[in-house]
């Protein structure tokens, strides 16, 4: 079972996670009529920017984050933003959007000038995340774990970051054992996704470049 401290930590993370909202004036643009590649590009860029702002707000509330060196805070966020966004998108595609919105978003992404070599693995990733039937708690904890990864580039004080990440890994491991009794490998599967996210992170710069060129 989760200890009372671990339960508090989980509730606290969930409370912060649930405060994440892209402003309605940004998300409603998704439903506007224009569907040119340029319009799709602009909408996705604005959503991504908004997404980063929301992610920073979540990160600021992670226990201990604000005690880290300021430049380490930036290095953690820079290193993880893309991965956290892919995770959030996976959650959104699998359970968050009202009916019809997911199709619209997918259509805009597919018709925004990004080449299929990036699109195909991306939607494959979202689909495979859906198959894991992750709860919101798991998405929240995994996002926090991704952000507090001590092995990002330019981190000076890795030990302090590790100390913040460890309790979250312990809660996630216990949570998986408690709520996925049918699959003893569930926790390992979630950690496996972190490797996959790193690959997306590496490809992301190339993807942006091809998007701009197109």
């Amino acid at each position: 079972e989760l200890t009372p401290e671990q339960q508090n930590l989980l509730h606290y993370i969930m409370d912060s996670y649930n405060k994440q909202r892209i402003p309605p004036e940004v998300s409603k643009k998704l439903l506007q009529e224009e569907f040119s590649a340029e319009e799709n590009f602009l909408i996705l860029t604005e959503m991504a920017t908004s997404h980063v702002q929301v992610l920073v707000e979540f990160t600021k509330r992670l226990p201990g984050f604000q005690t880290l060196d300021h430049e380490d805070q930036i290095a953690l966020l820079k290193g993880s933003a893309v991965e956290a966004m892919f995770l959030r998108s996976a959650e959104i595609f699998n359970r968050k959007l009202p009916i019809g919105h997911a199709d619209l978003l997918e259509e805009r992404i597919r018709n925004s000038g990004i080449s299929d070599e990036y699109i195909t693995p991306m939607f494959h990733f979202y689909k495979s995340m859906g198959e894991l039937k992750m709860t919101q708690e798991e998405y929240a904890l995994l996002t926090a774990i991704v952000i507090l990864s001590p092995d990002r580039q330019y981190i000076q004080d890795r030990e302090s970051v590790e100390k913040l990440q460890e309790p979250l890994l312990e809660v996630l491991e216990k949570y998986c054992k408690l709520y996925h009794t049918d699959n003893p490998q569930h926790f390992a599967c979630l950690l496996g996704r972190l490797t996959e996210l790193r690959t997306f992170n590496h490809h992301h710069a190339d993807m942006l470049m091809s998007w701009r060129v197109n």
């Binding site: 980063v52 702002q53 920073v56 300021h70 930036i74 820079k78």
Partner: peptide, 21 residues
């Protein structure tokens, strides 16, 4: 507009809490 900023700028501004400035 925010969409013209790079990732690091967005992060720095959001961390300082003055994104609207």
């Amino acid at each position: 507009p925010a969409s013209n900023l790079g990732l690091e700028d967005i992060i720095r501004k959001a961390l300082m809490g003055n994104f609207d400035d």
